[in-house]
Amino acid sequence: SEFSSRSGYGEYVQQTLQPGMRVRMLDDYEEISAGDEGEFRQSNNGIPPVQVFWQSTGRTYWVHWHMLEILGP
């Protein structure tokens, strides 16, 4: 990996993601499973900070930056 740390990767995702971009989950996290795909909606200063609309659940759920792989527009 070109990223030395999880936080470095998270910063990359945070700087790159734009609303509407497709993402894939890298880790299991509460209701969301690794491999689930969705659409980035928004972020804020909460914890976790990233709101994604997940195809698997049909609704939005908040996750962490480093848990997401960017699939593209």
Rank of each mutant, 00 (worst) to 15 (best):
E39Q: 07
Y61F: 09
D27K: 14
L26F: 07
S43W: 09
V13P: 01
W65S: 01
G35L: 03
E39N: 03
S56T: 06
Y61S: 15
W54P: 02
E37C: 07
P49Q: 03
R6I: 15
D36G: 01
Q15K: 05
E39T: 12
P49T: 00
E39H: 04
R59C: 12
Q42N: 13
S5R: 11
S5T: 13
S4G: 12
V50E: 07
M25E: 07
Q42W: 04
Q14R: 14
H66N: 07
L68P: 02
E2S: 14
E39F: 10
S5P: 07
M21Q: 14
S4R: 09
F53Q: 15
F3S: 14
E37F: 09
M21D: 15
I47M: 12
P48R: 14
V63G: 00
E30S: 03
V50Y: 07
V23G: 04
S7W: 04
T57E: 08
V50R: 01
W62E: 06
G38T: 00
E37V: 12
F53M: 06
P19R: 09
M21H: 05
G46M: 12
P73K: 11
V13S: 10
H66Y: 09
E31H: 02
S1R: 09
L26G: 02
P73M: 05
H66S: 04
E11A: 12
E69A: 07
Q55I: 15
W65V: 03
I70Y: 03
D27Q: 13
V63A: 03
D27L: 13
G8E: 15
V63Y: 04
M21E: 04
G20K: 00
V13T: 03
I70F: 03
G20T: 03
Q51H: 04
E39W: 10
E30A: 08
A34V: 05
M21A: 08
E11Q: 09
V23D: 04
I70Q: 01
P19C: 12
Y29K: 00
M25T: 01
G46F: 11
Q51E: 09
I70V: 09
M21V: 04
H64F: 10
S43I: 06
E69P: 03
T57M: 12
T16Q: 09
F40I: 06
L71P: 03
G72D: 12
Q14S: 11
D28A: 04
S56I: 01
E39R: 01
R24T: 06
W62P: 15
N44T: 15
G72T: 10
W54Y: 03
G8N: 15
P49W: 06
F3P: 08
L26Q: 02
E11K: 11
V52F: 03
T57Q: 08
V50H: 02
R24L: 01
G10T: 11
S43T: 05
Q14F: 03
E31Q: 14
Q55D: 11
G46S: 14
N45T: 10
S7R: 12
G10Q: 08
M21T: 08
V52W: 14
H64T: 00
Q14W: 02
N45K: 09
P73C: 07
T57S: 10
D27N: 12
G72N: 14
H66P: 01
H64R: 00
S56V: 10
G20D: 02
M25C: 03
T16I: 08
E11L: 12
L17F: 10
W54E: 07
R22F: 02
V13W: 00
H66K: 04
I70E: 11
M25Q: 06
M67W: 05
I47Q: 12
Y61P: 01
D27E: 14
I47F: 11
F53I: 13
Q18V: 10
